[in-house]
């Protein structure tokens, strides 16, 4: 009988790779950050399972933000891009069937939301939401317009770097993640108090998608690549070793 690898609990989150809960330069975090330590507990069935999302939930334009809100025959205004990548876990295994929900401002930096106060105009043909489910190799791809940077009320003159928000469901609820993808070369990234909540610049770099000319569509869209790594599970060998080993 060969050794059988068995998946054990999820690897604990490495706090050093994540933003601090309390980062005073991001003012809203001051009164919304828990002050007690998190209670650590090994994951079990409730964390190692997660909701199932079938490809049948997706509409034909869910992955196409250029067209999924636009009137017939029209398209969103702005630089056309493809965003693509893989969702893998910390062991490097692909995560198939992962639901990615994305949302973003339009090319002028304006969100379609009633609480949004920025004076940049709404694009009547841009809603700002889309979703995809990863394939068997953990791959995903969607198309959109590159969002604009926008000002926000924090300091007197804070601007968010251009970004796309991602909500990710992996296989287990313990992998649940919301993050933001930034664009290579944006000088606002390193001035942003929300980005700055992540202390490790190497961790920040993993949120910055490089331009990927090999995947661009000539005369149509540039491409940006963004791979997402979700929490992995420990592997243990639980069967008896064979005689002679």
């Amino acid at each position: 009988m060969a050794d059988t690898p068995r998946l054990a609990g999820y690897i604990a989150r490495d706090a050093g790779q994540h933003p601090a809960a309390l980062h005073p330069a991001y003012k809203t975090s001051v009164k919304r950050s828990p002050q007690a330590a998190l209670l650590s507990f090994p994951s079990g069935p409730g964390e190692e399972t997660g909701p199932v999302f079938g490809h049948d939930m997706l509409g034909p334009l869910d992955h196409d933000l250029i067209h999924n809100f636009a009137a017939d025959g029209r398209s969103a205004i702005g630089p056309r891009i493809v965003v693509q990548g893989r969702v893998i876990d910390q062991s490097g295994r692909p995560v198939p069937g992962a639901l990615l929900e994305v949302w973003q401002a339009n090319a002028g930096g304006r969100y379609r939301h009633k609480k949004e106060g920025y004076l940049a105009p709404l694009d009547p043909d841009f809603g700002g939401c889309g979703r995809v489910i990863t394939d068997a190799e953990g791959r995903y791809e969607f198309r959109t317009v590159q969002p604009g940077p926008y000002p926000w009320p924090n300091g007197v003159n804070d601007w968010r770097p251009a970004h796309i928000h991602f909500s990710v469901f992996g296989a287990g609820f313990a992998q649940r993640l919301i993050t933001q993808m930034y664009f290579e070369g944006d000088p606002l990234i390193w001035r942003c108090p929300i980005v700055g909540a992540i202390a490790d610049p190497e961790a920040v770099r993993r949120l910055i998608a490089p331009l990927d000319m090999d995947r661009s569509l000539p005369m149509d869209a540039r491409a940006y690549s963004f791979d997402i790594v979700l929490r992995g599970r420990r592997q243990t060998l639980f069967e008896n070793r064979m005689e002679g080993l």
């Binding site: 790779q17 910390q90 929900e101 928000h165 909500s167 933001q180 992995g232």
Partner: peptide, 23 residues
């Protein structure tokens, strides 16, 4: 073991992406 992708705040407009009909 690879490093996990860092989290970032969902921000004030999370509902655009996650519950768009509500917005």
């Amino acid at each position: 073991t690879l490093k996990e992708t860092p989290s970032q705040t969902a921000g004030p407009y999370v509902h655009i992406g996650c519950t768009p009909n509500v917005t």
